[in-house]
Amino acid sequence: MKIKYQTATLKIAAIYNLVWGAWVVLFPQQFFELVGMEKINHPMVWQGMGMVIGVYGLGYWWASTDPHRHWPIVMVGFLGKIFGPIGFFFNYFQGKVPFEFIYTLISNDFIWWIPFILILKDVHVKTHWKLS
C-alpha cells in the first residue's frame, strides 16, 4: 500500500515539476506579473531555475518506479525543498526579496514536505538507507 502511495506521490511531483519548469522556461516573466512583482532584468537566470526544476521532475519519475531503490533522488529533492525556503527567508529578512516570492515556495516546496518525509521515513525503516 505504501509503495503505491509513494509511487503516486513521486509521479505527481514529476508531472508538477515538468509543467512548472516548462512554464518558467517558456514564460519567464509571467510569475512576476501574476504576483505583482517587478519584472526581472535577467530572465535567463529564472529560466535556468525552471530547467533545474524540470530536471527534478525527470528524477522523480524515475524514482517512482522503485522509491526504495531510488531514495537518493527523493532525498536530493527533499533537501532542495528545505534549502530553498531557508534561502528565501534569509534573503527576505535582509530585504533582498519581496514577500510575494513566497508563493513559489508553497507549491514547489511546502506541500511536498510531508509526503517526501513519509517516503524517506519508510526507506529508513525498511532499508536503513541501503543503496542497492
Rank of each mutant, 00 (worst) to 15 (best):
M1H: 12
M1E: 13
I3Y: 11
K4F: 15
Y5A: 14
Y5G: 06
T7Q: 14
T7C: 08
A8N: 12
T9I: 03
L10W: 02
I12A: 10
I12L: 09
A13V: 05
A14G: 09
N17R: 11
L18N: 02
L18W: 00
L18F: 05
L18A: 06
V19I: 15
V19Y: 06
W20F: 15
W20M: 15
W20S: 15
W20P: 02
W20I: 15
G21V: 07
G21W: 00
A22H: 06
W23Y: 14
W23D: 12
V24S: 03
V25H: 04
V25W: 11
V25L: 13
L26P: 05
L26N: 07
L26G: 12
L26T: 09
F27K: 10
Q29D: 06
Q30F: 14
F32D: 08
G36Q: 09
I40G: 01
N41L: 11
N41F: 08
H42D: 15
V45S: 08
W46T: 10
Q47Y: 08
Q47K: 14
G48F: 05
M49P: 04
M49Y: 14
G50K: 00
M51R: 06
M51F: 14
V52A: 14
I53M: 06
I53A: 08
I53W: 09
G54S: 05
G54L: 01
V55P: 05
V55A: 12
V55I: 15
Y56L: 10
Y56A: 07
G57V: 01
G57N: 01
G57C: 04
G59A: 04
G59N: 03
W61M: 12
W61L: 14
W62V: 15
W62A: 12
A63Y: 00
S64D: 01
S64Q: 04
S64I: 04
P67E: 06
P67K: 05
R69M: 10
H70A: 13
W71R: 06
W71A: 02
I73R: 03
I73Q: 02
V74Q: 00
V74N: 00
V76E: 08
G77D: 02
G77P: 00
F78N: 04
F78Q: 08
L79D: 06
L79F: 12
G80R: 02
K81M: 11
I82W: 07
F83E: 13
P85F: 04
P85T: 05
I86G: 07
F88V: 05
F89V: 08
F89E: 10
F90P: 00
N91D: 11
G95I: 03
V97Y: 00
P98Y: 02
F99E: 03
F99K: 05
F101C: 08
F101R: 07
I102C: 08
T104C: 11
L105N: 11
L105S: 09
I106L: 14
D109V: 03
I111F: 11
I111K: 08
W112N: 01
W112G: 00
W112T: 07
W112Q: 01
W112A: 06
I114M: 12
I114H: 01
P115E: 06
F116Q: 10
F116G: 00
F116W: 10
I117T: 04
I117H: 03
L118I: 09
I119N: 00
L120S: 01
K121W: 13
K121I: 13
K121L: 14
D122T: 10
V123F: 03
K126D: 06
K126W: 02
T127W: 01
T127Y: 08
T127V: 06
W129K: 04
K130P: 07
K130G: 14
L131V: 15
L131K: 10
L131Y: 09
